[in-house]
Nucleic acid binder design. Sequence first.
DNA 1: TACTTATTGAAAACGATTTTCAATTTCAAA
DNA 2: TTTGAAATTGAAAATCGTTTTCAATAAGTA
Lengths: 138, 138
Amino acid sequence: MVADAWLIQLQENGYRLTEARRAVVRTIQTSSRALTPVEVFDIARKKYPALGLVSVYRTLEKLEELHLIQRVHQPQGCQAFIAGGSGHEHLLLCQNCGQVMLFEGDDLDGLINAISKKTGYIIRDHWLQLFGLCEACQ
Amino acid sequence: MVADAWLIQLQENGYRLTEARRAVVRTIQTSSRALTPVEVFDIARKKYPALGLVSVYRTLEKLEELHLIQRVHQPQGCQAFIAGGSGHEHLLLCQNCGQVMLFEGDDLDGLINAISKKTGYIIRDHWLQLFGLCEACQ
DNA sequence: TACTTATTGAAAACGATTTTCAATTTCAAA
DNA sequence: TTTGAAATTGAAAATCGTTTTCAATAAGTA
């Protein structure tokens, strides 16, 4: 019935497709903001009341391992997850409603080279996150 | 005896100077990598064995509130603290030894304007963190 | 020196996450 | 279809990091 890429990914990695996993996947996929495990639990249970919180944790773990979701770091905490992007993308968060957008196309080469030269570090990775107000919240 | 800026800051904000606070302050100030509360506890107790873990948490809370320390976000967790910079600075972390350096002079205006135009967001803040290998670990 | 009040460490409480376990469900093989 | 092995489940218990409570102590002012 569902030709869902995430479910296929789970299956191809040897995981079984269960109602609990479908419920968690659907919940995260349809959210425009990052959700904590308990939030996923509360939302998903509306459609699948038998769901247990433990299964939420276990499914999130697998989805993160497959890079289908990613953890969102914020000043208030780092327990929330959002659908992961494809390739190299960064996050843009609305400080009012929590909406998360992904963007790509950062060109930090100049900056990174300068810092590398100044500090002697070999730089292998970077995190960039922007905070602001989405159009609706301005 | 100690003409320490952090201790003065604490005092000026109405907090008393105690051995527990001195021990925590000294521990963080002399560390080149981010420390978790328990790590601070273990290190500080070597010089002040009577220290309690609760006082570590309470002192970290006050130091963070005064912006003297900052929380370090990493893939493995976000509970560690490092001495805070002055003004607008970003972190550069060694993925091998954990050493943390601060740098400033990021010019993200072009990038931020482009993202702002593309998404309609008003961008008010940003986080940038670089990961790599320090000279000693290469 | 005396006194008020912040601060302390220990123990208990708490909340989030993980582990254990018997029952259930999935899915491949018959 | 049916069967059966193995993965997955939810509930309960255990665990971990952090916070609260509380009586004793220490800091700093008068």
